[in-house]
Computed example of a mutant assay.
Amino acid sequence: MLFKSRLELLEITLLRSLNARMRLSHKDVSNYTRLRKGFEGEQKSDLWLEGLSEEWLVIHDLLLEYNNSKFQIDSLLISHDKIYPLDIKNFEGDYFVEAEKWYTSSKKDMKNPYTNRIVVSSYFVPYSAILAINIHLSPILSSLTPNFIYI
């Protein structure tokens, strides 16, 4: 059962409007492309999750705060005995890891996609204790693109 749907980020809407009216800086174009691609991946994931039975509670685009720190969960799936925070990635191309640092094939460093799983786990467990929820947490990192290659 869908509890909360996903809305497009205001930043995407603003950058799309500005992009149609003026020439954006390279940094703004890169940011717009990254945000749009991420949102498109999340929408694809949302379509796949529509097929879940009514026994599942689905919450999209959840922003929580714990101990003065905000953390975001792309989709949260709740069953009778587990909670699955999903971190959706819509990567393309080749990536490699050296000493736990992620790089594109052109050797440009990038944010480690597993970092958000660690943040969600470390914040969500005490958060659920405050809410008196005693349930197992199983974070999932999901890559949607078949041409994403992790070396």
Score class of each variant (00 low, 15 high):
10 L>Y: 11
10 L>M: 14
10 L>I: 13
10 L>K: 09
10 L>V: 12
10 L>H: 08
11 E>F: 03
12 I>A: 09
12 I>V: 10
12 I>E: 08
14 L>F: 07
14 L>E: 12
14 L>K: 07
14 L>C: 07
15 L>N: 00
16 R>I: 12
16 R>A: 15
16 R>E: 15
17 S>G: 11
17 S>R: 10
17 S>T: 14
18 L>Y: 12
18 L>C: 06
19 N>R: 07
19 N>A: 13
20 A>P: 02
20 A>R: 00
20 A>Y: 00
20 A>I: 05
21 R>C: 02
21 R>D: 03
21 R>G: 01
21 R>T: 05
21 R>E: 05
21 R>F: 04
21 R>K: 13
22 M>C: 13
23 R>N: 09
24 L>R: 01
26 H>W: 09
26 H>G: 00
26 H>F: 10
26 H>K: 11
27 K>Y: 06
27 K>E: 12
27 K>D: 06
27 K>Q: 10
27 K>L: 08
28 D>G: 02
28 D>F: 00
29 V>F: 05
29 V>C: 03
30 S>A: 14
30 S>R: 08
30 S>M: 06
30 S>H: 04
30 S>E: 12
31 N>Y: 07
31 N>K: 14
31 N>S: 10
32 Y>I: 01
34 R>N: 11
35 L>D: 11
35 L>H: 07
35 L>V: 09
36 R>F: 04
36 R>C: 00
36 R>D: 08
36 R>P: 01
37 K>A: 11
37 K>E: 04
38 G>D: 04
38 G>P: 00
38 G>H: 07
38 G>Q: 05
38 G>A: 08
38 G>C: 08
39 F>H: 09
39 F>S: 04
39 F>D: 07
40 E>M: 12
40 E>I: 12
41 G>E: 10
41 G>V: 08
41 G>I: 05
42 E>T: 09
42 E>Y: 08
42 E>G: 05
43 Q>F: 00
43 Q>G: 09
44 K>I: 08
44 K>A: 14
44 K>H: 11
44 K>E: 15
46 D>C: 10
47 L>V: 13
47 L>W: 11
47 L>S: 11
47 L>Q: 13
47 L>I: 14
48 W>C: 15
49 L>E: 03
50 E>S: 15
50 E>H: 14
50 E>M: 15
51 G>W: 14
51 G>V: 03
51 G>C: 10
51 G>D: 13
51 G>I: 05
52 L>V: 06
53 S>R: 04
53 S>F: 12
54 E>A: 12
54 E>C: 11
54 E>N: 13
55 E>V: 00
55 E>Q: 11
56 W>R: 03
57 L>R: 01
57 L>D: 06
57 L>H: 05
58 V>R: 01
58 V>F: 03
58 V>T: 03
59 I>M: 07
59 I>L: 13
59 I>E: 02
59 I>H: 00
59 I>D: 01
60 H>D: 06
60 H>P: 02
60 H>F: 02
61 D>M: 04
61 D>N: 13
62 L>V: 07
62 L>Y: 03
62 L>K: 02
